[in-house]
């Protein structure tokens, strides 16, 4: 029996449902010695900014129980560097590329989107609405459903490329945010980003991270991610790329059952940098052994009564 692993997410054809989580896979070069990026359904690259930004002071990472807390702060060498250094190599990859972006203003999001669209090689754009290290007027931009709606609407008008909105989990109303991005015209949702967290060093009696707080990722957040995806799946019609602590094919299937059409691998890439081909192999085997001939049949299947 041949099983179908291909999925279509926000209009993007993927040969399997495994993609990379932004910020954990660079610009597609770092893991090449271990496996070709073409193994993946799509590559989601590190979030870029329009203007150079140094990122947060070190230390930027701290270990937590079954997790990682990061406060990288989205360093960026700016647009020109991106076009000169990253784009030529990204163009070589024979896999859909989804570029993640962040802006300090709505105008910056729109401008980046226009410029990226003109480059002509991208499969889609992901709007990072959820970086806990970025603030707009005191509140994190991505926490306000009205702002998020406005942002997606304006970016939507600037491009025909598939548009994914990446949501923050650090809200009391993730469903409200999801409805806003759908109403604004997003083609899909990526979730979840990291959960706001911190670590304290007993030896120095000070916060570990240079930025004091950061975002928790890895297995520790998987149950949170599953439930948020579950809730959002019930509330919107656009597809979801699910993530948050997946480390093996079982986790991937759980995300799909909760409602994700594709699943992003993030922190697991650091733990086992060959995770993607391993999980893909196991996934195919599971489907075969369980007589499931199309992975799409499992999407949201946990909701069926």
């Amino acid at each position: 029996m041949t099983v179908n692993l291909t999925v279509k997410v926000a209009g993007i054809e993927m040969k399997n449902p495994l993609v990379t989580a932004s910020g954990t896979y660079g610009f597609g070069q770092e893991y090449r010695d271990l496996y070709p990026p073409e193994v993946l359904g799509a590559v989601v690259t590190k979030t870029i900014r329009l203007r150079p930004h140094p990122g947060n002071p070190p230390p930027r990472v701290a270990e937590a129980p079954a997790g990682l807390i990061n406060a990288i702060g989205i360093p960026s060498k700016g647009w020109d560097h991106y076009v000169r250094e990253e784009v030529p190599r990204l163009r070589q990859l024979e896999v859909p590329i989804i570029q993640s972006i962040v802006g300090e203003t709505l105008d910056e999001y729109v401008e980046l989107t226009e410029r990226l669209t003109e480059l002509g090689f991208l499969a889609g754009i992901e709007l990072n609405l959820s970086c806990p290290n970025l603030r707009a007027g005191g509140l994190s931009l991505g926490l306000d459903p009205d702002m998020v709606y406005e942002l997606v609407r304006r970016v939507r008008a600037a491009t025909d490329l598939p548009l994914l909105a990446k949501l923050t989990p650090n809200t009391a109303d993730v469903v409200g945010l999801a409805r806003s991005v759908q109403a604004g015209g997003a083609d899909g949702i990526a979730m979840i980003n990291t959960v706001r967290a911190m670590a304290i060093d007993l030896r120095t009696r000070r916060p570990v991270l240079g930025n004091i707080s950061g975002g928790l990722s890895g297995p520790a957040i998987k149950p949170i991610a599953l439930y948020q995806i579950w809730e959002v799946y019930e509330a919107v019609d656009i597809p979801i790329i699910g993530m948050g602590g997946a480390t093996d094919y079982r986790d991937v299937l759980e995300f799909i059952l909760a409602g994700a059409r594709a699943v992003a691998l993030g922190t697991v890439n650091f733990v086992d940098p060959s995770a993607a081909p391993r999980i893909l192999r196991d996934l195919g085997r599971y489907l075969e052994e369980n007589g499931i001939d199309d992975i799409n049949d499992l999407v949201g299947a946990a909701h069926r009564t």
């Binding site: 770092e30 230390p59 930027r60 990472v61 990061n70 360093p75 890439n269 650091f270």
Partner: peptide, 14 residues
């Protein structure tokens, strides 16, 4: 420096 990936992907070890 504290590292997550060790291979240049996370920009965590600057």
């Amino acid at each position: 420096e504290r590292m997550a990936c060790g291979l240049g992907a996370c920009i965590g070890c600057v």
